[in-house]
Amino acid sequence: MASISVRGIAVDFPLYHGSSRSLKKTVLAAASGRVGKDRQHRVVVQALRDIGFELRSGDRLGLVGGNGAGKTTLLRVLAGIYEPVLGHVRIEGRLTALLDPNLGMNPDLTGRENILLRGLYGGLSAEATKRLEENVQAFSELGDFVDLPVRLYSSGMMVRLGFALATAMRPQVLLMDEWFLAGDAAFMEKARARLEDMVRGAEILVLSSHVIEVMRAWCTRVIWLDQGQARADGPAEQVLEAYLGYKLPPLPPLEAAALPGAEALSGAAAHR
């Protein structure tokens, strides 16, 4: 059983200005006995303050908020990249964080080499890497391009490869940043089923997005982050309405039941 427990965490970003970052200033400060004071008065950006929640298997958490509200920072904390200065985080389960579309992708390597490299990053066995290769190759439809350097790819091919790689793993805990839902329309059509499959397969989903329809369809719970603090936390509809400031129209019942998120994702495609 996967679980996430976050209790009262805070994350500060120290601001190292050109001058305060230098050794000179620290040495001078130490020489004049101001290190303690300096440390207390260090300029920090309070990226997250007093965030807490518990998630268990089956929970789908959405994060909303303006730019700089702390959504990505919170995802990075959950991924174990930023460690909090206060509080406690505990995550059980195999975790995949889709934070960077081009994670570990090297443009000078061929598609196949990039796939193998990703297998190594994931610590996969030779057999699992082989399956990863076949799977990614089939989905990304690169054909013979798979043996050419990635920098020769069209942007569409690049997106397909990145997406196929990122979504090939089946984690228990899935963290997804908003870039993931921002593909071009034709591609999203194709990617939709695969992404939904991954989301459904994950025991816990934490998603950051600006696309309200996706949030509504996929998330059972939403936290509204504002300047690093949780402004609201509760059932998806309720928090989203508070965030948007207007009442959401009811979801079309048939579609919502049949294919959660399908309509939202192909919304852009409909404009074609």
Binding site: G80, E83, P84, V89, R90, I91, E92, R94, G122, R131
Partner: peptide, 17 residues
Amino acid sequence: LAMPEGAASPPEPVLEL
């Protein structure tokens, strides 16, 4: 890509910060 569910599956990794 993970181990098959069931008997042989290893204990789930725990990340604690």
